[in-house]
Amino acid sequence: MRKRSPAAERHADLVRTALFEVAPAGMTLTRLMASCELSRWQARQGLAMLRDLCAERSWPPVIYSRDLGYHFCASEDELEEWERAWLSEKLTQFRRMLTGTIAPHLALFPKSVWAGYLSDQMKAIESNLALAARPPR
């Protein structure tokens, strides 16, 4: 369990209260900052801590959507859609790392044990993310 700062817990409580007040609607980050009187950094810190608390306490997860902003989500379809979008974003990041950094590293230093190992591991992760990002059949 990671150490929690009292400030982060206070920010998470402010964010939770603000989101409960507008539920089932959500809030943009700007509105959340204004409602809680927090800076951008504090609001993001509060959201991160709130996500941890949601997981620990079996609360509905906090997600972000363009339509609603940050909100508690209990809809299976919306959660699956959000999870696939998140996986797709991570898949893009892994592919860019493979093609933009690791491949040039291997081209410059073809005998690099580290680059070969990293390439193999990243390709395995990429294939798993690609499978997870697709809807089940």
Rank of each mutant, 00 (worst) to 15 (best):
P135S: 09
L47W: 03
R66S: 10
E80A: 10
M33A: 08
Y117M: 09
L38K: 02
L47V: 09
D67V: 04
E76K: 03
P6F: 13
R2N: 06
L47E: 03
G116P: 05
L108R: 07
D77V: 05
L108W: 06
S112C: 11
T101R: 06
R57H: 13
L106D: 05
E80D: 13
A43I: 00
P61I: 01
M33V: 07
A130G: 06
S5D: 00
L38C: 14
F20H: 15
M33F: 14
R96W: 10
E81C: 05
C73F: 03
C36L: 02
A74H: 09
W114K: 04
M122F: 12
W59H: 03
R96N: 15
H11T: 00
M1Q: 06
G26Y: 00
W114Y: 11
F94K: 09
S119T: 01
H11A: 10
K3F: 10
A34Q: 11
L91C: 10
R2Y: 02
A18R: 00
R134W: 01
Q121N: 08
G69D: 08
A48M: 01
R66C: 05
A7V: 02
K123D: 13
E76D: 12
A85Y: 02
E126Q: 05
S75T: 05
L131R: 12
T101L: 09
T17N: 11
F94R: 06
L98G: 12
L29S: 13
L68D: 15
K3H: 09
T99R: 09
A12S: 14
A8F: 04
Q42H: 15
S65N: 07
L106T: 04
L131H: 04
M27C: 15
A115L: 01
H11E: 01
H71K: 04
V62H: 03
Y64S: 12
D67T: 09
P6K: 13
R51M: 09
L129C: 13
V15N: 07
W82K: 06
S88D: 08
F109M: 01
